[in-house]
């Protein structure tokens, strides 16, 4: 019993003797990674983008509602610096593109049926390569730049969504998937004008949005919008 009391006393003293917490710990021997940075050899960052369809459709019957036809994009970008002026890189992204089809008597995409509202939604996983030209002197900083590149994307999910007001006053919302007319892949050129985090972007889609067998007129090929690079400054 006496031993137990002594042991408890000892443990109590021991615990109070070493009550402490490390609030600052710095090891200066840890080498800082100098090859990674906004204006260093390698850099990666994420970005978000919002693009709007612009320009006319290729043929009549494929008119869209501009402003509402837009794409939201989230991506991860790699940049390899070759000099203060030239860099190149690649990126991976996921994108949701919504094409709001204008409803009128001459409409042909994706069919001739008139609805109150209709949109085609493409969910895409994409990749791109680009060449960057920077302007002006800068430190470890993205700076001002122009990018020219090419992109490709896989349409892993496409749906057609329609809204109709029925005669009995009810609203009908239909959603169709696994259609046979969307093309499996999309590719095109892109160009960007960047000011640090803020980027103006334009895309030109070379590929057709619909498969050849569907024989549908093409929706507008140009899109333009803004990207926000998620890097610290």
């Amino acid at each position: 019993m006496i031993r137990l009391v002594f042991l408890l006393c000892f443990l109590t003293v021991l615990s109070s003797s070493f009550a402490q917490s490390v609030v600052i710990a710095e090891d200066l021997r840890e080498e800082q990674e100098r090859a990674f940075g906004m204006n260093r050899k390698h850099y990666t960052h994420t970005w978000v983008g919002l693009h709007f369809l612009v320009g006319p459709p290729e043929t009549e019957g494929a008119e869209v509602l501009y402003g509402r036809s837009r794409a939201l994009e989230f991506g991860y970008r790699y940049k390899r610096r070759f000099s203060d002026v030239f860099s190149a890189g690649s990126e991976l992204s996921v994108r949701r593109s919504a094409f709001h089809i204008r409803q009128h008597s001459g409409k042909e995409v994706p069919d001739t049926i008139i609805h109150d509202k209709e949109k085609l939604v493409f969910l895409q996983a994409g990749a791109a390569i680009y060449q960057r030209v920077n302007f002006g002197q800068r430190g470890d900083y993205i700076g001002r730049f122009v990018d020219i590149g090419a992109y490709g994307a896989w349409n892993f999910h496409v749906r057609q969504v329609t809204h109709d007001l029925l005669d009995n006053g009810e609203r009908l919302r239909s959603r169709r998937t696994r259609m046979d007319y969307p093309a499996a892949f999309e590719y095109g050129f892109m160009a960007r004008l960047g000011f640090n985090n803020f980027v103006l972007k334009g895309n030109y889609r070379i590929s057709d949005l619909f498969s050849g067998s569907a024989d549908l007129p093409e929706l507008p090929r140009w899109s333009a919008g803004l990207e926000f690079g998620m890097h610290p400054y």
Binding site: R40, D84, V85, F86, F135, G136, Q137, I148, G149, A150
Partner: peptide, 26 residues
């Protein structure tokens, strides 16, 4: 695009940018 891609390998490779102003067009 292909021409631009080929520009990179001939550009100076350096981790730290130089102080020259040769690229300053504006």
């Amino acid at each position: 695009f292909l021409v631009l891609l080929t520009v990179n390998p001939v550009a100076t490779v350096s981790t730290l940018p130089g102080k020259d102003y040769s690229a300053t067009a504006s």
